[in-house]
Design a binder for these strands. Structure first.
Lengths: 140, 140
DNA sequence: CTTGAACCTCAAGTTACTTGAGGTCCTACC
DNA sequence: GGTAGGACCTCAAGTAACTTGAGGTTCAAG
């Protein structure tokens, strides 16, 4: 039976982050202060791993540390509805969509830029790059 | 002829950034040290505005300060081909595409999360949020 | 019992800026 | 010509979310 007792290194590996990141999360309060062995090394259990994965997942969701703290508080209070969580997620979704929109435009522009380089400058790399010159004038 | 003589405030306004950002760009070498008036105030010309716009556009493209410095060097050297610029843009395009991929997954997951909240928890916000529990079972 | 990998703490660095304190300059108005 | 106040100045420190480094301790294997 896995009364595991994970080291910080193992936790990091399974949680998909660095050892430093875990210590950082503890410092800022995203993870509770870890139990210690005699020598001072941190020990973790499965619950810690779940918590860490939750935090990492939220970070993947682009939640800020403070937002994740809020989510954790909602989760731990037990007596509060999921309305808060949903609202946080909805707000985050809007941000993600806006960012997605920007990134798509960015991809288009960069692709365009690279293609211009191929057609306008290659085959004989001249002294001046036309697309680069265009960039300087864009937005006027 | 517009021998303009822009103040830093005007430059900021026209360049779409803050006054502090301009001073910062000067400090890190993205803008050349500005000319000064008798009292020490910075004065700018149209060339500076063009340069600033170029920098801002590159930042919109998610280029780092160092990458922009490289681009500016390419632009100013005049005797180097656009190959470098194209390579930088290509690398950036790859990064942008990877980010786009992640963001799309993120959007899907967040949407899913919000929808779960709507169906599983609303209409009577109970004590525990099922989707939140799915993210990582709390307290267990 | 001795390596050497993994761990510890604390401090400082990273990126691209922003914010703040404390002081100077410029322009417009009377 | 004097003055109010807005724009400007410098320098230092703060921000997010970590990472990196120095210098030292502990643990597991051989």
């Amino acid at each position: 039976m896995p009364a595991a007792g994970l080291t910080i290194g193992t936790l990091a590996e399974r949680g998909g982050c660095s050892v430093s990141t875990i210590r950082y999360y503890e410092e800022v309060g995203l993870l509770p202060p870890a139990d210690r062995r005699a020598g001072g090394h941190r020990v973790y259990g499965e619950a810690d791993l779940r918590r860490l994965k939750f935090v990492r997942r939220c970070r993947d969701f682009d939640f800020s540390i403070d937002e994740i703290k809020a989510l954790v508080a909602v989760m731990e209070s037990g007596d509060r509805s999921c309305t808060e969580a949903r609202d946080l997620a909805t707000a985050r979704l809007a941000v993600v969509r806006a960012r997605l929109f920007e990134l798509r435009a960015l991809e288009r522009d960069l692709k365009q830029f690279v293609e211009s380089c191929e057609t306008a400058c290659l085959g004989g790399p001249g002294p001046s790059c036309a697309p680069l010159g265009d960039l300087a004038r864009a937005g006027d």
